[in-house]
Amino acid sequence: MIRGIVIVGTLLLGVGVVAAQQDLVAQRATLMKANGKNLGTVLSATAKGDKPYDQAAIDAALNVLEDTAKKLPALYADSTKGLKSEGDFQASPKIWENKAGFAAEIDAFAKAVSDVKAKAKDLDSLKASLPAIGKQCGSCHEGFRVKT
């Protein structure tokens, strides 16, 4: 009887752990999408002249990006290696083969965001500083993201 409970309990625990890992993968996708939305519809839209310059909106969007940079490392835990994501893109196995390189990309992203935060005070300074963020997004996507 006790043995039965232990076995069932272990199995449930196992299912729970796997579900939690898959949840991390889903969180990554959600976070990346939110990131892109803030970049595309707020920051870049302002730089392109589609939206009037609004310092509060710029700061709010940059805060989301900053927050993302902090959350990213934990979302690529070893336990999520090999798990597939829904959608068009997957995390490359290189993330776990070259951990230092991946960590450096996230650090560079965080730095790019804080640079823009310090510099973006009007449309011209936003236009001049913002491309560094997109460049960093591209740099990491080049090596660590796979299109399916």
Partner: peptide, 12 residues
């Protein structure tokens, strides 16, 4: 910039 109108940034 490599950035699409949706805010995604190209890779590969």
């Amino acid at each position: 910039t490599g950035e699409t109108p949706e805010g995604d940034t190209t890779g590969g």
